Simulated assay, not measured.
Amino acid sequence: MKEKPEAKQRSINGNTLECPVCKNDTFWMRKTLMNTKGMTFFKLDWANKEAQNYVCDSCGYVHWFIQP
């Protein structure tokens, strides 16, 4: 069984991240591919852009961030 990543305080552009649901301030990070229909059709899912997710360690709410 895979261990859950370390939960800790995170900041985005200098602002401390806080869960809008439970007000918790610790999150663990994961990366997710932003799949598109076209890339999936051609079986090129691996080439899609990647988003960074911060998951609330208390309630599981997921924040999604992509690089501009």
Rank of each mutant, 00 (worst) to 15 (best):
N13L: 11
H63V: 08
N53E: 13
N15K: 12
L44I: 10
K4S: 03
P20M: 06
G14T: 06
N35C: 08
K4F: 02
D57L: 02
F42T: 15
K37H: 10
T26P: 02
P68G: 11
Q9F: 05
M1V: 13
L17W: 02
W46C: 08
N13V: 06
M29E: 08
D25W: 03
P68A: 11
M34G: 06
C56H: 01
A7G: 15
M39R: 12
M1K: 10
W28P: 00
M39Y: 12
W64P: 00
K43Y: 05
W64S: 05
C59E: 02
L33K: 05
E3N: 13
T26N: 09
K49P: 08
F65P: 00
A51R: 00
V55Q: 00
N15W: 05
K23D: 08
W28L: 02
K8P: 04
L44M: 15
P5W: 05
M39A: 11
F27R: 01
E3S: 14
R30Y: 05
N35L: 15
T26W: 02
K23S: 13
M34C: 11
V55L: 01
F41T: 15
G60V: 00
N15G: 02
E18R: 10
T40G: 06
R30H: 04
V62N: 01
T26F: 04
K4M: 06
N48Y: 03
V21T: 14
D25E: 12
Q52P: 01
F42A: 09
P5Y: 07
S11A: 14
